[in-house]
Design a protein around this nucleic acid. Structure first.
Length: 470
DNA sequence: TGAAATGTTGGGGCG
DNA sequence: ACGCCCCAACATTTC
């Protein structure tokens, strides 16, 4: 079969060999398979963030190892996708290109144009579902439109979500002859240098094996108490699978199947697992929204918010980014983000509420920062969650819902272990005041006083939202 | 996937 | 024993 024309598998955000429909389809019949990753730092959908680049570097390295073991090494090329692919097709005589679908408008536009180009040139160009449990066009409301509210969405989608078993990885791949030129991953400089700020990222294991290990660890313990512990940043209560999911180190279907198996075997209480599955549901919902309402990538879902009087506050923004707002739970979150490339989800809501409601800074500015600093930065999730917090999104938190950073801290970090870990200035503040250290008998030296009074800021935000409505 | 303000209730102290 | 008041605890409304 070595004379058969090769098939290209175009990897993007599906950096794995298991449960990979495009890879399985390409390997069928034993024809040569050309796995390729094309590095276009400008996107779509947008320029690669710094923390994402760090992750991509490691995940690609693991994928390259896995594909080499299977028999066909990963080809790395840099540049404009259409140009690179044209050259690769000409060079190899490939007759098919397979890939996993993306759901933002810019990626869809690019992929659609390429598909018609390749089809026009006589190739088989085919896309697959490699990233979602339920693709956005699969479910619709009774009226026939897209969902805008999570609960009815998930009621409809979770039925469609179950069932399909993950695909096994191909047992072996046939490499094209002669071997193809590939860039060296190191030459892409995805890992930061001068300075290398990634020293705190050490707990992550990007790649397929790391994702599986993370999933097993999660199902082994945290999943059993997920309902109670998922909101506790001081505990290891969450799965931490988000960056793996973004880059496709693991598929949601693989996670779903493992969850169902664990619940079925009684390894973890079904009710707890169901709440975790609902979190996967939010990811699905966010992709559903981005597909059906592509403008939300930069515009308010609710146009009524377009005239919101956001404030330009460079000093406040800098304090927020650097974790020196004077509110421990906010500062702990922002420092955890900067140091590790990740922030606990409960704390994301708190810091986002603080930026948008206490500082009245445009949600897009916060979204930009998250995009650059999160290893799990994902357009669909990032945009939908920021709009949720700001109140301008679909099924958003009502405008009057303002998080109190003191109460949130006391409720979800009761002993102050989380804030003390990331804000060492608080080491000696008694538990009773650790979330409002300015009230301690001896306020910690070197830790800032609150940059804004929350209760004043809350009234100010409610006034701004009220005026917008009228 | 809030928090604060306001309303209601019921037990206990007290004259 | 009784009524009155206080206020914690809970419920409801409002932002």
């Amino acid at each position: 079969m070595t004379s058969a024309a090769p098939a290209i598998v175009w990897f993007r955000r599906d950096l794995r060999t298991g449960d990979h429909p495009a890879l399985v389809a390409a390997a069928e019949g034993g024809r040569p398979v050309i796995p390729v990753y094309i590095h276009d730092p400008e996107g779509p959908p947008r320029a690669l963030g710094g923390a994402s680049a760090w992750w991509l570097d490691k995940s690609l390295a693991r994928l390259a190892e896995a594909l080499a073991t299977l028999g066909s090494p990963l080809i790395l090329r840099k540049g404009d996708t259409a140009t690179v692919m044209r050259a690769l097709i000409a060079e190899t005589g490939a007759t098919a290109v397979y890939w996993s679908r993306l759901y933002d408008a810019a990626s869809i536009a690019r992929d659609t144009a390429l598909k018609s180009e390749w089809t026009g040139a006589g190739l088989e160009a085919k896309s697959f579902n490699g990233a979602l449990l339920v693709e956005p066009w699969t479910v619709s409301t009774g009226a026939g439109g897209p969902f805008k509210v999570f609960t009815p969405y998930w009621k409809a989608a979770r039925t469609a979500a179950g069932g399909a078993a993950p695909l096994a990885a191909p047992e072996r791949l046939v490499a094209p002859e002669p071997p193809l030129r590939s860039d060296r991953l190191a030459d892409w400089s995805l890992h930061p240098v001068k300075p290398d700020w990634s020293g705190g990222f050490g707990d992550w294991s990007p790649g397929e094996a790391g994702a599986r290990e993370r999933l097993d660890t999660f199902l082994d313990a945290p999943a059993r108490a997920y309902a109670d512990h998922r909101n506790r940043p001081d505990l290891e209560g969450t799965s931490r699978l988000s960056p793996h999911l973004h880059f496709g180190d693991i598929s949601p279907r693989q996670i779903w199947a493992a969850c169902e198996a664990a619940a079925h075997l009684g390894d973890a209480p079904a009710g707890q697992i169901e709440i975790f599955e609902k979190e996967l549901g939010w990811r699905e919902f966010n992709h559903h929204l981005l597909f059906h309402f592509p403008h939300i990538i930069r515009e308010n879902f609710q146009a009524g918010f377009d005239d919101f009087p956001w404030i330009e506050d460079e000093a406040g923004l800098a304090a927020w980014r650097e974790g020196r707002t004077g509110y421990p739970i906010v500062d702990a979150g922002m420092r955890q983000l900067w140091t590790t490339g990740w922030m606990h989800n409960r704390v994301r809501m708190i810091v986002a509420s603080f930026l948008v409601k206490d500082l009245l800074i445009d949600w897009r500015i916060g979204e930009d920062w998250f995009w650059d600093t999160l290893v799990d930065a994902d357009v669909a999730n990032n945009v939908a969650n920021w709009q949720w917090t700001a109140g301008c999104g679909a099924d958003a938190a009502p405008y009057f819902r303002v998080f109190n950073p003191i109460l949130q801290g006391e409720k979800f970090d009761p002993a102050g272990a989380y804030v003390r870990r990331w804000v060492p200035e608080l080491a000696d503040v008694p538990d009773a005041e650790v979330h409002q250290p300015w009230r301690a008998a001896n306020p910690p030296p070197g830790y800032p006083a609150p940059i804004v009074d929350h209760f004043m800021a809350r009234d100010r935000a409610l006034e701004a939202y009220r005026r917008l409505k009228s």
